[in-house]
Design a protein around this nucleic acid. Structure first.
Lengths: 139, 139
DNA sequence: GCTTATCCTACTATTTAAATAGGGTAATAT
DNA sequence: ATATTACCCTATTTAAATAGTAGGATAAGC
């Protein structure tokens, strides 16, 4: 299951992608439109800003904007920032690799090949889908 | 990420699939071979037994056996028993459907189509892979 | 009737998720 | 200048899920 953090993050990005480029959108506006706790959303947006998906403007008339065209923000990138590894087990993760602590030997693990297949399949979808696609609602 | 419960469950099934059919294997043997906490494994096997994936025999010479040929146990079935929904959001789950409580309208959700695509892709893999495939290590 | 091994319930500890609180800081308008 | 707006940041809390533990009940076999 997807965490709410990731779900909210994707919804927020999609919402921003639907707005006119270049004008800052306030957190409260996104929060209301997407039915997300304001404070929770605040922390999510901050995280995405720190990872260069968003830029922000303070003060009156401030808010958040996409840091780049929505077509250039893949779901894979968002997923990794908010959710973490795309793979189902750490030992087949490309970006978050870690040995599984119950496996003696990775090559001997009966799940290894399946986990790689699943990872590659999901990766393909996530990398070939952008926030712009979500905004168009024509995935 | 896959829970340890599911991971251990799949490993246990695979281990059983590799044994000679018809002779009961003790929990302790699986636990040692797969490096899984005995008591935790016990509860996992019990759950799979209750869901008709395993049969057991008590007393001396007892243990667990697959309830059907390994070729007939799909990963999808195991996943749903131990992990729950295969989909990433409840509102696109086939077996565990539930409305997402942040969405006003499902058809209007920007993630909906993507989530369905991901679900179908994973489902395809999980339904077309059996415990026998894992045991062969030729997924 | 003793041993073996599963069955079953309940409990606990740890971690993660999902917020919430509350003030700090910067930009803008007047 | 100063009041207001809106993001920035840290810490705390609550609830749930995960992972495992304890201890005995039950059934089968010798």
């Amino acid at each position: 299951m997807l965490s709410r953090k990731t779900k909210y993050g994707l919804k927020a990005l999609t919402f921003l992608a639907k707005q006119e480029m270049g004008i800052p959108i306030q957190i409260s506006k996104i929060s209301e439109a997407e039915n997300i706790s304001l404070k929770f959303l605040e922390s999510i947006l901050l995280m995405m800003k720190k990872n260069d998906l968003l830029i922000s403007k303070k003060g009156k008339g401030g808010g958040y904007m996409l840091a780049k065209p929505a077509t250039e923000i893949s779901i894979a990138v968002v997923y990794r920032i908010l959710e973490g590894p795309i793979s189902l087990v750490p030992c087949v993760s490309l970006k978050f690799y870690k040995k599984c602590d119950d496996c003696h030997d990775e090559d001997d693990c009966s799940l290894h090949d399946l986990m790689i297949r699943v990872r590659d399949n999901n990766l393909k979808i996530y990398e070939n889908t952008s926030v712009a696609d979500l905004a168009k609602n024509e995935v």
